[in-house]
């Protein structure tokens, strides 16, 4: 049967890597299926607010949706582990765990256990974000005390523990909030995306590394009944296109970010590294937060343990095999 998919997306398709894969996926599915899957993209808010995509797909109100699933941590506590993990894996390591480890199957179970009627397919990934845009530098861990900051995901819980006041404003409100001092700092995404949102005009310090989000993953959420309707060839195509989108998204971000960073310097933005001892403290708090979350939610625990299990052997390989950036 021919499928017609209305696909709401969580980020504007103008945002490279984060939103831009969605029209690409739609286009590929439509063309490569010879029209047996036709996909129309709906920009955020056109059909519904971006935060409601999971629910709408699960209810079958829309057949599919494309989004960063970490926004649903208020409904499905384990989901951030699939979306972005502080001090977590690098993008390619995450794909290793997702495709060849337990990742993909665990995600389906997590959704099912939380009562959602969706099938999730990894369909885009980007490299590290920046640690954000700040009006003042972070040079010691006390600088987080009283900081009003927009910080999504588990990283938000970490700096919340360090005394920051954390909100999760949507991208459209960030510039204004930063400009007027509603917030002192924000993270959003990688440089190529942050540039589009103009943060550099109002906050002069761009901090690195992106400890809170070494990878950021987007998913195609498909309603289960809709998935049941697909033929074998349609399924194969969906999986192939999404797997390709993962590569394309990563490539797009890696291609753009360096040039963008160079441009930032010309605009008088100071790129600063968060000192190592601060990072060490952030890491310690991150471990605490992850343990706490694992204690609160059984699915979180299972996924967390599976990732750690994979990392145990992976680290051996990673540490031996890869060059450190500074030695490249």
């Amino acid at each position: 049967e021919d499928l017609r998919w209305k696909m709401p997306i969580g980020f504007g398709s103008n945002l490279p890597g984060l939103g831009s894969p969605s029209p690409w996926v739609a286009d590929m599915l439509t063309k490569a299926s010879g029209g047996s899957i036709e996909v129309r993209v709906y920009e955020p808010g056109k059909l519904m607010p971006a935060f409601d995509i999971l629910q709408a797909v699960s209810d079958g109100k829309v057949p599919v949706g494309y989004t960063w699933i970490g926004y649903d941590q208020g409904k499905v506590p384990a989901v951030p582990l699939f979306a972005a993990v502080p001090f977590g894996m690098k993008p390619w390591a995450f794909t290793a765990w997702y495709y060849y480890g337990e990742g993909h199957d665990l995600l389906q179970e997590v959704y099912a256990n939380a009562g959602y009627n969706v099938r999730a397919q990894l369909c885009g990934i980007i490299g590290p974000e920046t640690a954000g845009w700040y009006k003042n530098e972070i040079s010691k861990v006390e600088d987080y005390q009283g900081l009003k900051i927009r910080f999504a995901g588990l990283g938000g819980k970490v700096i919340e523990k360090l005394g920051a006041s954390v909100s999760v404003l949507p991208s459209g409100d960030l510039f204004q909030a930063l400009e007027t001092g509603t917030i002192d700092a924000t993270e959003f995404s990688m440089p190529a995306i942050d540039k589009a949102l103009g943060f550099g005009q109002v906050a002069k310090f761009n901090l690195f590394p992106g400890w809170h989000q070494p990878f950021t993953a987007q998913y195609l959420l498909i309603n289960n009944a809709e998935w049941e309707k697909t033929t074998e060839s349609q399924r194969a195509l969906i999986e192939a296109v999404c797997t390709a989108a993962v590569t394309r998204a990563l490539a797009e971000g890696e291609f753009l970010n360096g040039a963008v960073l160079e441009g930032f310097e010309k605009d008088g933005i100071s790129a600063k590294q968060i000192p190592d001892e601060v990072l060490a403290q952030l890491k310690a708090v991150t471990d605490e937060v992850l343990e706490e979350e694992a204690a609160k939610n059984a699915d979180f625990k299972r996924v967390y343990e599976s990732q750690n299990e994979f990392l145990k052997s992976y680290r051996v390989w990673e540490e031996r095999a890869y060059l450190y950036p500074k030695l490249d």
Partner: peptide
């Protein structure tokens, strides 16, 4: 009812619960 079933709360860690 769905918000009640899923125990939905704010996406912000220190935000309000009981959506």
């Amino acid at each position: 009812l769905e918000a009640y079933r899923s125990g939905e709360r704010s996406t912000a860690p220190a935000g309000l619960g009981h959506r």
